[in-house]
């Protein structure tokens, strides 16, 4: 079974971010970058499927050369090889889907797993756009994935509002990983060393024949108004008095 999994380089969720003076983007100097947390979950799931079924896990990252750092992290977790799509311009989720479509057409994976959202742009669209472009079924917000014995279908439990849904999709399919799908493994030191030798193929958007023309562009960033803290109350009675007389919520 061949599984394609995507890894996006994002700023560390713990990082304190600042806006560039011209407001065009965040300042990236001195900011730590990591694998998008939902993509880590996607990689882990791909590895688990491979470990049960045998096969290959191929990781794809799109961006400038530095994104290969995060790709190496996925290889250190156990992915077999990488495809680095070298692209330096701006892009939106639709472009990501367009690029991935071309990669999928070349690689013909049985399953494609992405994160449910990138935690920098918080868009949450690329996976489902890819599924539509390919004409594949999708299983969004997965918390459990079971592959049928004949390897023709996946039964996916998904996190929806107010509960869970069990959805059956034919392979090939697109799955997006939610928080509770698994707990990603740590890469061991020997595996981090081994990952340096794993093959990474570099391709360009042009060579793939993918159209990239962002429909969505960020014009300006601003910081939202800060909420001011209030007071510390002395006791439970004090709190109740304030909630009743000041906030008038009781």
């Amino acid at each position: 079974m061949k599984i394609l999994v995507t890894v996006k380089r994002v700023s560390d969720p713990e990082a304190k971010l600042k806006i560039k003076p011209d407001g065009s983007w965040i300042q990236t100097e001195g900011v730590k970058f990591v694998v998008n947390p939902f993509d880590e979950i996607a990689v882990e799931e791909a590895l688990r499927i491979k470990e049960k079924q045998t096969g290959e896990v191929v990781v794809v990252s799109i961006g400038e050369k530095v994104v290969t750092e995060q790709m190496r992290a996925a290889l250190a977790m156990g992915a077999d090889r990488g495809i680095f799509v070298n692209y330096t311009g701006s892009y939106d989720s639709y472009d990501v889907a367009n690029i991935l479509q071309k990669v999928v057409e070349q690689e013909k994976p049985d399953i494609i797993i992405l994160g449910k959202q990138a935690v920098d742009d918080d868009m949450g669209a690329a996976g489902f756009m890819l599924a539509e472009l390919l004409g594949y079924p999708q299983a969004a917000f997965a918390s459990k994935v079971e592959i049928s014995d004949d390897k023709k279908k996946a039964k996916v439990t998904r996190e929806i509002d107010g509960g869970l849904e069990v959805k059956e999709v034919e392979l090939p399919c697109v799955i997006t990983a939610d928080l509770r799908l698994n707990t990603p493994r740590y890469a061991s030191l020997p595996n981090i060393m081994k990952a340096k030798q794993k093959p990474v193929k570099e391709v360009t958007v042009d060579a793939l024949g993918a159209a990239v023309k962002p429909r969505v562009t960020v014009k300006k960033l601003t910081e939202p108004p800060k909420r001011k803290g209030g007071v510390k109350v002395e006791s439970v009675q004090d709190l109740v008095t304030k909630l009743k007389n000041e906030a008038k919520v009781i």
Binding site: D122, V218, K219
Partner: peptide, 10 residues
Amino acid sequence: MWAGSMVADV
């Protein structure tokens, strides 16, 4: 964007 730490005009 970025967990609500920025608001973007798009």
